[in-house]
Amino acid sequence: MAKIVAEHLKYKYPLSEKLALYDISFTIEPGEFIGIIGENNAGKSTLCQAMVGIVPNFYKGAYGGKVLIGDMEIAKSNISDICKKVGIVFQNPFNQVTGCKLTVYEEVAFGLENMGLPRSEMIDRIDYSLKLLDIYKYKDRNPFDLSGGQMQRMAIASIIAMRPEVIILDEPTSQLDPQGSEEVFRAVQNLSREGITIIMVEHKMEKIAEYSDRVMLLHEGKLIAFETPEKIFSRDDLDCYGVTAPAYTRICKSLGIKNKKTGFYPVTLEETKSLIGFSEKERCPYDQN
């Protein structure tokens, strides 16, 4: 399983004047679940693309520093080789449809065919990932006749079926219903427990806080912080970076409730519940169910 290392990564799109990524360095261990947050245009998608080689191999532009996946240097490898190790789900699922397959089932098969998998294995994996994303019943549908959320599910299924070592998801649940996005987070967490590295861009802070091991905060192409969710969301300057803490953290900030053990504000429902519930029990014990 591969470690991801970025060293002084810099990047500028061909026709733009300013850097989209500015001197970014980090190390991600195998099996980690990494959340990426930041305002619009912070460079989140660009960073994702830099980890699969779309930047710079497809877009060209000015590039400095390097990104390593295991011992493979991204800028010097072909996307077709990188994609065996690193899978990416794009921000806009409509852009991820290959257009040369007529059914959802075949669409998911596309990547597997290119990997040269035997047919029986292909079928196992497709069935598994379609069921995981709850779209098995649409398997014979034309990919373009799906609703937005269903298309997003198909894009995720297509990548999960390829079983790469690293999965990058760029706002993968933006069009999913609440239970659907919860299921995706759980499924992806299970993958990370199996040792697959997960990198996920999201605006749903409650989910990022609950599921990520560490969170990257990006702003104007710079990596502002790369810490545990508690540490990131306890910062007072989040507003300057155009992000907001999870609802639970905002409540606790207003009420001045900190986790005494860690010294940070709680970030999940469970933690908040136990802290508020605790202070409540002291006062009105019968208000509890």
Partner: peptide
């Protein structure tokens, strides 16, 4: 966009392809 979509699904791979159907 299609070209990128194909690329990240290993379309350009030199691996010998197999086929679902």
């Amino acid at each position: 966009e299609r070209a990128i979509a194909l690329e990240v699904r290993g379309f350009g791979s030199k691996q010998k392809k197999t086929f679902l159907n």
